[in-house]
Design a protein around this nucleic acid. Structure first.
Lengths: 202, 202
DNA sequence: CTGCGAATGGACCACCTGGTCCATCGTAGG
DNA sequence: CCTACGATGGACCAGGTGGTCCATTCGCAG
């Protein structure tokens, strides 16, 4: 498993990860079984254990890593260029759309609920994801500062953290209730408050 | 099961529900088994199925209902009296403390991740919880308006929804990363922004 | 006291699921 | 070509888990 992977092997491995991700999204981590994954990815049990010797947990971690990357990627290029109010608005739309489309499937949430506390490496993935996500938001805020659209003494980190929390909360409410009202409200309110900070001292 | 419950029966039933809640919190929904619950509640399998004929799912729903009530109760009396900035501040402290103490145990979150989409009645419980929670926040905001601390043209519902999302997000980040930074940031920022609304037009 | 239904005990079962094992096939490099 | 090793197939297994069943005990009303 250390680079001893043929081109064919690599292909199979990613086919499994991506297929597993789809299965997990549809059936939920709790009820998704190795058999489901085998069927979906047209692979055999030996293949599963060949590429993920430690078994299901290892596979789940791989999927988690895969999904974590997806999350940020899906917000590009907007998330990377939050340098004007228009950009923020476009990004908002993308986020809302992405999660509304996703509906009550939770690629990551459920994953970490199940293995988050058990496997140590898993938590690191979420932490890293949150860190990068928040950093992008912070960069956006700083870009607005640089453009003179926001005062320089703004507490960028707290603002970014709070925005991130707003999104997460909106998403988890969407997941459990099926309504995107809160996600929209949280994003709109968050951005509006940011705009307000442009006009008042913090 | 319809009122055919002896006093003893009722006692047993709630002993099971509360014990099960504890087990779920500790072991997580995914890995908690009926045996665990039997041991913890000192009951037999026949009892479990006597009080919850539909089996594990029905029990989980009962626990969900129990936990949902707890959530709001734990925030009282503060959540019910958000009529001054001091009250809001106290409430903030209670929320932060409650969830920091709780750590990465998720009484509700994990529960709904597992049975949320499957059982139809379950989703109703979360929706109802969110509704009541948000309503309390909205009542608090209106109280501030009545006291003249906030302008009358404030969009109370959006503000309340966004605050609720902030909390949920902070909590879920706390659950998956173990850090309460975001919960604190989200609450502080949310309340601060509310205070700002007192000084500027919306 | 007695009888009936609720409450409880605990053996028992069927099934699913993750995981193991070995035999076979494909293929790249010598 | 041939050989060594990765890739694949698929039977098999062991344990755990939810769920069933029946026998027994308990508690209250008549």
């Amino acid at each position: 498993m250390r680079g001893e992977l043929t081109a064919k092997g690599k292909a199979t491995r990613s086919r499994i990860v991506e297929g597993a991700a789809a299965v997990l999204r549809e059936k939920g981590v709790a009820s998704a079984t190795l058999d489901d994954i085998m069927v979906r990815t047209r692979s055999s049990k030996s293949q599963l254990f060949h590429y993920f010797p430690a078994g299901k947990d290892e596979l789940l971690v791989a999927v988690a890593r895969f999904e974590a990357d997806q999350v940020l990627e899906d917000q590009q290029p907007y998330l990377g260029r939050l340098d004007s109010w228009e950009a923020w608005s476009e990004w908002r739309d993308v986020v809302v759309k992405r999660y509304e489309d996703q509906g009550d499937q939770c690629p990551l949430g459920s994953l970490f609920m199940q293995i988050g506390r058990s496997t140590p490496g898993t938590r690191a993935i979420v932490i890293e994801l949150m860190r990068r996500w928040q950093e992008s938001l912070a960069a956006g805020i700083r870009a607005l500062q640089a453009a003179g659209s926001l005062p320089a003494d703004l507490d960028v980190d707290r603002r970014a953290a709070s925005l991130l929390a707003a999104i997460q909360g909106g998403v988890s409410i969407l997941l459990s209730t099926g309504r995107s009202t809160h996600l929209r409200a949280a994003l709109d309110q968050g951005i509006d408050d940011l705009k307000h900070a442009a006009r008042t001292t913090e």
